[in-house]
Design a protein around this nucleic acid. Structure first.
Lengths: 193, 193
DNA sequence: ACCTGAACACCGTTCAAGT
DNA sequence: ACCTGAACACCGTTCAAGT
């Protein structure tokens, strides 16, 4: 009953893999159903056998981006792990953001953040708020950063020098500084409750 | 020299006003150049006399959304004022987010936040980080919230009951709770520096 | 189970030409 | 100064039909 079919065609993971390749090459603006179909040497309509619509396909891409492995159990480490995942793919933050908002994606990092906040002494409800606050910050910050990269590419000879100062160096510092403020606030909220 | 022209045609503010009407009626997905042109009884190509491209038009819409008036000078009040502006327009957070990331928009609330953070005792650099952290949180949170509204409209008979619990009530509380954590963290960072 | 081919109803942008 | 008309190169989605 597990006999290999006569002609091996595409399955869901193959479609997602093709989408990841297109994303790496052309970013989110280039990630059209037609480009993905081309990558598989297939008609566009074939994709709709595997996924009901583009958003569902993007949700599968998002799941690939954020991964399913384990996440560090400290708050700042978990936040940075999420950020690194997003940064590892072009427009990663934007894709994940929309899948998340549509309720089509589970975030392993969020689960880890809730646990860490609880361990720090927050009530269950406060831990959820803290986790969401940090997730919003990470995604918002990284989204903004990745879109600036786009703008910089478009306006090559632009005065965008001061917008993207020394590339990764300073930005990582700012991200960490902001994150530290939030984490401090979360810990401070234990005293209040 | 200020004589009224024979036939009064459209100017930039009129185009922006038309775009705001379309946005109110159909949201960001419906905000196409063609729909805006229709609203003005004009050909699409006419819009390109007023704006070089759609992003520039969206930046003008964003400026209208965030306003130019004065902003409360306390940190949490300034953050809530920004949030209220975004919530007052369909997909306000998404539109503003992309204009901001592209460097096409000034945020009055950000200026107020920097000033408030400085007054709280932060260094100039730390005050900028604090302001950006809060702005990212506000936009990220509101973006997420507004996209859920979309999803709820699309899946009317859905099990989206637990995703949008009691509408505004609980959400406002969660937003404020998260904001309070960040503000506490910002104030805590004064001791460190 | 997976795909083709063709169509539908859209997009943003450009450009010569008009008044 | 502001607009028309037509075109270009795209989109996501649907659907009957094939193997």
């Amino acid at each position: 009953m597990n006999a290999a079919p006569a002609s091996a065609r595409n399955d869901k993971p193959a479609v997602v893999a093709a989408a990841m390749r297109v994303l790496a090459e052309s970013g989110l603006p280039g990630l059209s159903m037609r480009r993905i179909a081309d990558e598989l040497d297939v008609q566009v309509s074939a994709l709709y056998w595997h996924f009901p619509n583009k958003q569902a396909l993007l949700a599968a891409v998002s799941a690939q981006i954020v991964g399913s492995g384990s996440v560090p159990d400290e708050m700042d480490a978990a936040a940075r792990a999420l950020r690194d995942r997003l940064l590892a793919h072009q427009d990663g933050a934007e894709i994940v953001s929309s899948s998340l908002a549509l309720g089509l994606l589970e975030l392993p990092a969020r689960t880890a953040l809730v646990a860490a906040a609880r361990q720090a002494g927050l009530t269950d409800a406060a831990a959820e708020v803290a986790a969401d606050t940090i997730v919003h910050y990470v995604i918002g910050y990284t989204f903004h950063e990745q879109q600036r990269l786009h703008a910089a590419v478009v306006g090559a000879a632009d005065a965008s020098v001061d917008l993207v100062p020394d590339a990764a160096g300073e930005r990582r510092g700012d991200f960490d500084a902001g994150l530290a403020m939030i984490v401090a606030g979360v810990q401070a909220s234990v005293a209040v409750s």
